[in-house]
Amino acid sequence: MKAEQVIPILRIFDYQKTIEFYIDWLGFEIVWKHYFEENAPVYMEVKKENITLHLSEHHGDGTPGSRVFIWGEGIADYHKELIEKKYKYNRPGLEKTFYDAIAFTVDDPFGNKIIFNEKFDERKHKDLNFYPIH
């Protein structure tokens, strides 16, 4: 088997909080959204560059408190961009991990965590200030 793409499904509970967090703060875009009927839960796809997530208000689609682990590049710059937005509910710290990466974790309003990681490069990351997580 060769996987073409892996798309995590995260449980959400509030559409407006979802937009505030994933679209306005993290910078994802809505690719599509679906309702089975009026006043039904939303199921949607959001994307930021090569990261695709499915977000669902449907009971049974995902468990609150799930984690998504992402490897990427430009993590320090992305962290800085998010911190500069001064999002009221989340100001993640940048850390150097035990697995030789720089990383930060964001907690969505529904208990899910997304961990953004980049392989540590001494030359590239030597001047970074690592911040406490809060």
Rank of each mutant, 00 (worst) to 15 (best):
M1S: 14
K2G: 08
A3N: 10
I7A: 00
I7W: 01
P8I: 01
I9A: 14
L10C: 11
I12W: 05
I12R: 08
I12V: 15
F13Q: 05
Q16K: 15
K17I: 02
I19H: 00
E20Q: 08
E20P: 04
E20K: 08
D24P: 01
D24F: 00
W25F: 15
L26H: 00
V31G: 06
V31L: 08
V31P: 08
K33S: 15
K33P: 04
Y35M: 11
E38I: 13
E38G: 08
N39D: 15
P41D: 04
V42H: 06
M44W: 02
M44N: 00
E45D: 04
K47I: 03
K48Q: 05
K48P: 02
E49V: 06
E49S: 10
N50A: 14
T52C: 11
E57R: 06
H59M: 10
G60C: 07
P64G: 08
G65I: 10
G65S: 10
S66Q: 01
S66N: 02
R67G: 11
R67K: 07
R67F: 06
V68E: 00
V68Q: 01
V68R: 00
I70P: 01
E73H: 03
G74L: 02
D77S: 13
D77A: 10
E81S: 11
L82F: 04
I83F: 11
I83S: 09
I83M: 14
I83K: 15
I83E: 05
E84G: 14
Y87S: 11
Y87D: 11
Y89F: 13
Y89C: 06
N90F: 09
P92C: 06
P92D: 06
G93P: 04
L94M: 07
E95K: 15
T97C: 07
Y99R: 12
Y99H: 15
D100R: 14
D100C: 11
D100E: 14
A101D: 02
A101Y: 02
I102R: 03
T105F: 06
V106L: 02
D108P: 09
D108E: 07
D108N: 09
P109Q: 04
F110E: 07
F110H: 09
G111E: 13
N112W: 05
N112Y: 04
N112S: 10
K113Q: 15
K113H: 13
N117K: 02
E118W: 00
E118P: 02
K119D: 06
K119N: 05
D121R: 00
R123L: 13
K126D: 12
K126R: 15
D127F: 12
D127L: 11
Y131H: 12
I133F: 11
